[in-house]
Amino acid sequence: MNHEIYKKQIKSAIEELKILDLYRLDSDSELLNKAFDILYKKEIFKLYKIDKSLHNEYKFILFSMLTKYSGSLAFLSIQILAANAIMAGNNFPKQEEYFAKKCGVAINHLRAPVTVVWATPCEGGYRLKGKLTWASGYKIFDTLLIGFHYNGREYEAMARFENSENFQVGEVASSFVGDSMATVNIELNDFFVPSEDVVSSKVMGNYTKHKSISKTVHFALYGVGLGAVEALQDKDVKASAKSQLESIKEQFLETESGEVMDRLRIELFTLIQSVITTGMVLYGGKSILLEEKMQRYYRELIMFNSNGLNNTIKGLFKENFLSR
């Protein structure tokens, strides 16, 4: 697969998406599931079949084209791409079987300095206890990549994403954006993970220490920005916004510095927030209607920017505000 073939696959999927009531994708889980299936069947998420060094190029193409149609759909795309990338980076017995699944992720707790989910070894695998948080895509993803600690090591493993006595799915969290993604917390109560479903086992702290510089949030924010610029009706504002957005894009595509990426994230967020606010003001009162794009872009901007926030990025946002 090359760039042009991938773009054609995405364009074909988007043509099918356009038939749906796209403004309802943020609130209707069944409709979001249908939209996700369109992308899945078009093999949009099979980036594990191409060289890892090219993944960012393909993800940039995907989120540049997709995000303006639905932030919730783009967010779930981030989840399955992350799960597939982790599976592709580890050789485990059921890799091909799980590549064929719709897989989400619930491993952010591995960054915590304490054990959140712990394991007891048993015949044929492990018994898990603890709590998985912020697992999105309930009843959309059929499988979940989960994380746990045992004996000074951190593990990643596959699990069915369905409610059971030992895998207790909580109530869907209500939110002002991405409600359709059905984000839940999960109580693990003596939950059994077979050894053959273990994807990786590394020294504790490996997930945080070796987490690569990710540009995925930047790609998604940029996609929101493209949608917002396209929706602008004032020619002068549109021209200026497009120029500023493209300038930041060139910078985050070029750099491999984590410090620069963090700074550009703040610049990107601030610019897009200003573009959306200005566009809504110039459009007038109708901009608050649910079927209007700008109010959705505003909410999705907040959603994507909340992904992967750490103390460094929070500090930069604070510094940026106080410097006004």
Rank of each mutant, 00 (worst) to 15 (best):
residue 139 K to V: 11
residue 88 A to G: 08
residue 111 R to N: 14
residue 87 M to F: 11
residue 215 K to R: 14
residue 315 G to T: 12
residue 282 L to E: 07
residue 156 E to T: 13
residue 212 S to D: 08
residue 223 G to K: 14
residue 319 E to H: 10
residue 99 F to P: 15
residue 209 K to P: 12
residue 299 R to L: 06
residue 196 E to R: 14
residue 25 L to F: 01
residue 179 D to T: 14
residue 295 Q to D: 01
residue 200 S to P: 09
residue 84 N to Y: 15
residue 279 G to D: 05
residue 81 L to D: 10
residue 23 Y to H: 02
residue 52 K to Y: 12
residue 107 I to Q: 10
residue 196 E to Q: 08
residue 5 I to K: 01
residue 40 Y to A: 11
residue 102 K to F: 08
residue 199 V to W: 11
residue 51 D to E: 09
residue 5 I to A: 12
residue 29 S to N: 04
residue 165 E to C: 03
residue 276 I to K: 07
residue 68 K to I: 12
residue 98 Y to V: 07
residue 278 T to E: 00
residue 41 K to F: 01
residue 17 L to Q: 00
residue 216 T to R: 13
residue 194 P to I: 13
residue 71 G to C: 03
residue 170 G to L: 04
residue 202 K to M: 05
residue 170 G to T: 08
residue 204 M to W: 03
residue 294 M to W: 02
residue 81 L to Y: 15
residue 249 K to I: 13
residue 292 E to P: 04
residue 226 L to K: 15
residue 47 L to A: 07
residue 308 G to A: 14
residue 177 V to C: 07
residue 33 N to T: 02
residue 169 V to W: 03
residue 250 E to V: 09
residue 124 G to A: 03
residue 178 G to D: 07
residue 5 I to T: 10
residue 321 F to D: 15
residue 140 I to S: 12
residue 60 F to A: 13
residue 268 L to A: 11
residue 145 L to D: 04
residue 208 T to Y: 02
residue 159 A to Q: 05
residue 36 F to G: 11
residue 182 A to Q: 06
residue 62 L to W: 01
residue 158 M to L: 09
residue 269 F to A: 02
residue 183 T to I: 11
residue 169 V to A: 05
residue 51 D to L: 09
residue 3 H to C: 03
residue 248 I to D: 13
residue 122 C to N: 09
residue 281 V to T: 02
residue 280 M to I: 01
residue 225 G to N: 13
residue 180 S to Q: 00
residue 110 L to V: 11
residue 220 A to Y: 10
residue 41 K to D: 14
residue 145 L to T: 01
residue 70 S to N: 10
residue 186 I to R: 01
residue 15 E to I: 09
residue 9 Q to N: 08
residue 118 W to P: 00
residue 155 Y to N: 05
residue 316 L to D: 11
residue 80 I to Q: 09
residue 106 A to R: 07
residue 76 L to G: 02
residue 159 A to V: 02
residue 44 I to A: 03
residue 43 E to G: 00
residue 86 I to K: 08
residue 67 T to L: 07
residue 61 I to K: 01
residue 227 G to N: 14
residue 268 L to M: 15
residue 285 G to I: 04
residue 187 E to F: 06
residue 73 L to C: 05
residue 137 G to R: 10
residue 300 E to N: 10
residue 168 Q to G: 00
residue 208 T to C: 07
residue 90 N to K: 02
residue 310 N to R: 05
residue 112 A to C: 07
residue 225 G to I: 14
residue 64 S to G: 07
residue 150 Y to P: 13
residue 1 M to T: 14
residue 74 A to G: 04
residue 83 A to K: 12
residue 304 F to N: 06
residue 30 E to V: 00
residue 157 A to Y: 06
residue 122 C to A: 11
residue 49 K to P: 05
residue 24 R to W: 09
residue 248 I to F: 15
residue 185 N to Y: 00
residue 293 K to Y: 13
residue 251 Q to S: 15
residue 46 K to D: 11
residue 40 Y to N: 01
residue 60 F to C: 02
residue 74 A to K: 06
residue 254 E to Y: 13
residue 42 K to R: 13
residue 166 N to L: 00
residue 156 E to Y: 15
